[in-house]
């Protein structure tokens, strides 16, 4: 049994069958990549995992519990954190405040009317956030407006925010999309380091084969809304079905 079990999931948008009969099992403490050509249903599948979409059929179990019908914030509190394709951070807030918010969410849950003590008096959260910023090597930027940072720094901050919640499953949606090669390599190194230092399961959706083959231990190839194959990176590289899906039948 994997930590994430997707069974027979289907999702239809009007006339488009975006997902049909998707089965996926992500084993604990592995890096699992989901790849596929444009329109294969990768993002739809991801949205079904985090509560943004509800599949028409099938089941999604996280750690033995169904996530279906739960709001995104509830699923997050169960232990799934999501990193977006374009970094989603609190642009109007400072870097330190950005990091404190997930720490508050971890400590106080989905809602807490903590309206009279000052933020600076919350030492435990403050320390935790500072510690995480140091780990992400951005402690010197703590008083900067998050929106003013570079794309790479925003991505790093977002990953740090997700990690500060100590999630059991980290979902990454094309984390290096639109990045320069150097930034991409930095992100790969960061993710490798994260994986080394803690017990965490990472599921990654990616276009860039370089990223996928540097990180993944298992790869699922999705095409036209169904998983084509699931295997180790070595076997996927030479798989005829994968070539067919990516390059077209005649190739």
């Amino acid at each position: 049994m994997g930590i994430l079990e997707v069974k027979n999931v289907g999702k239809r948008f009007g006339g488009l069958q975006a997902l049909s009969d998707v089965n996926l099992s992500v084993a604990e403490n592995t890096v699992h990549a989901i790849i596929g050509p444009n329109g294969a249903g990768k993002s739809t599948l991801l949205n079904c995992l985090v509560g943004k979409l509800i599949p028409d059929s099938g089941s999604v179990m996280f750690d033995g519990q169904s996530v279906l019908g739960r709001a995104p914030y509830e699923i997050n509190q169960m232990g799934i954190s999501r990193v977006f394709q374009t970094p989603e951070i609190f642009g109007d807030l400072t870097v330190l405040e950005n990091m404190m918010i997930p720490c508050f969410a971890k400590r106080d849950g989905a809602f807490e009317l903590n309206a009279l003590p000052s933020v600076s008096s919350q030492k435990d959260v403050m320390d935790r956030a500072m510690h995480m910023l140091e780990e992400m090597r951005m402690a010197d930027k703590r008083n900067m407006h998050a929106a003013a940072m570079s794309r790479g720094d925003k991505r790093r901050l977002e990953i740090g925010m997700c990690l500060s919640q100590e999630p059991r499953l980290l979902l990454l949606d094309e984390p290096t999309a639109g990045m320069a090669r150097a930034d991409t390599n930095n992100t790969i190194d960061l993710l490798k380091q994260i994986k080394q230092e803690r017990d965490i399961t990472i599921a990654i959706i990616e276009h860039d084969m370089h990223v996928v083959f540097s990180l993944a231990e298992r790869i699922t190839v999705l095409a036209q809304g169904t998983p084509l194959v699931e295997d180790t990176p070595e076997n996927i590289k030479g798989h005829p079905k994968v070539r067919e899906a990516y390059l077209g039948e005649s190739a």
């Binding site: 985090v50 914030y73 609190f90 807030l93 969410a105 807490e112 903590n114 309206a115 933020v119």
Partner: peptide
Amino acid sequence: SPFGMMLRAVKSNQQRMNYT
């Protein structure tokens, strides 16, 4: 307060808040 910070977070990015 932390509550005030959360309210500013609502203004800044509700999506991120939901997924946090």
